[in-house]
């Protein structure tokens, strides 16, 4: 009896040792990808790399960036994957991202990558804004469908538009920056001034205007396109409009801690297989050989604004200051 017990115990201990000897490596990945795709990407990666396990830490772009910056002196992340290019530029400036050239970099469309010569971040996909337009509400209010930015400043839309506050939301800043870079500085500010007359309210989150348009709280929301598309599939009476000069950014990957496992995560994230997964969600991806199969946004590439991400990052503080001065101190919110 006693010996049998001993044998079982020894066997158990041995098994335990054996398991820990196999030690699967864990890689902590910070991301701002939508929560519903995380499991899919993780499974695909781990199938090809059975010795590595991904531990996601997910939050919205703003909080994720704030977290990474706050943890600057003591980084928790090993890889950042799926975070806005402007945030990546900021992280690189702060020395959080390590310079690393992943395998098969040549296959990527360089316009989505770090524009500087010592590249530290690499595009996965492009995410862009859209105008979410609620058909039912529009019909009730007799609002025509807008097709361009200039349509939105028509008096008929007064009090029916929501957009993200660029001081709270990266999405909001992305659009403001696109206007500034494509319309010309002076014209862009005067455009925003006119648009401000039509704005019902500025929101604190980037996807909220589309959400509110989807719920009929406003007729029009300037917001992330992917959120609009998603709400549409859920049954919201939305039309997602892509006007010319739409703001966009790449979502990118970068290395924080130099380990073999971490590098393999970065490598895989720009691989063709990964891009095939991205294309299910995003109409524009970085890999040259992967193109959209569904035509949700047919003319997207031509509508995308010309964006200088370096400039976008550099003038951020001053733009936000001017913006806040002009629009964040309205005495009364408009109804």
């Amino acid at each position: 009896m006693k010996t049998r017990f001993m044998k079982t115990a020894i066997a158990t201990v041995l098994t335990l040792c054996a398991t820990s000897g196999y030690a699967v490596q864990q890689v902590t990945v910070y991301t701002a990808f939508e929560t519903d795709v995380l499991a899919k990407y993780k499974n695909a990666f781990e199938q090809e790399n059975p010795d590595i396990v991904i531990k996601w830490v997910r939050d919205s772009t703003g909080i994720m960036t704030a977290k990474l910056l706050a943890e600057k002196n003591n980084p928790r992340a090993e890889v950042v994957w799926g975070l806005a290019g402007s945030s990546m530029a900021l992280l690189k400036n702060e020395g959080i991202l390590k310079i690393y050239t992943p395998k098969n970099l040549a296959a990527l469309d360089n316009s989505l990558n770090d524009p500087q010569s010592n590249q530290a971040w690499f595009g996965n996909d492009a995410f862009f804004n859209a105008i979410c337009f609620n058909d039912i509400v529009a019909k009730q209010l007799n609002l025509p469908k807008p097709t361009s930015w200039n349509d939105l400043i028509k008096p008929i839309y007064k009090g029916h538009i929501a957009m993200p506050n660029p001081a709270s939301s990266g999405t909001g800043y992305m659009q403001v920056s696109a206007w500034l870079q494509n319309m010309g500085e002076q014209q862009a500010w005067s455009y925003m001034q006119k648009l401000d007359n039509n704005i019902a309210h500025y929101t604190h989150s980037g996807s909220k205007p589309c959400v509110q348009a989807g719920m009929g709280e406003v007729a029009i929301g300037i917001s992330t396109a992917s959120r609009g598309a998603k709400l549409k599939t859920q049954g919201a009476p939305l039309t997602v409009i892509i006007p010319n000069g739409i703001g966009w950014e790449s979502e990118a990957v970068g290395l924080v801690k130099e380990s073999d496992a971490a590098k393999r995560v970065v490598d895989w994230s720009i691989s063709k297989n990964a891009n095939k997964l991205y294309i299910e969600m995003y109409p524009v991806v970085a890999h040259k050989e992967v193109t959209a199969t569904t035509k949700n946004f047919p003319n997207i590439k031509s509508a995308m604004a010309k964006m200088d991400f370096a400039r976008m990052g550099d003038e951020r503080a001053s733009v936000l200051k001017t913006w806040s001065q002009k629009f964040d101190s309205k005495s009364e919110p408009k109804s």
Partner: peptide, 17 residues
């Protein structure tokens, strides 16, 4: 909405900027 208060300002400063 656009009715800013100090508490949301902190949020704006941390998360937005």
């Amino acid at each position: 909405g656009s009715y800013n208060v100090l508490a949301t300002d902190i949020f704006k400063q941390v998360v937005g900027q």
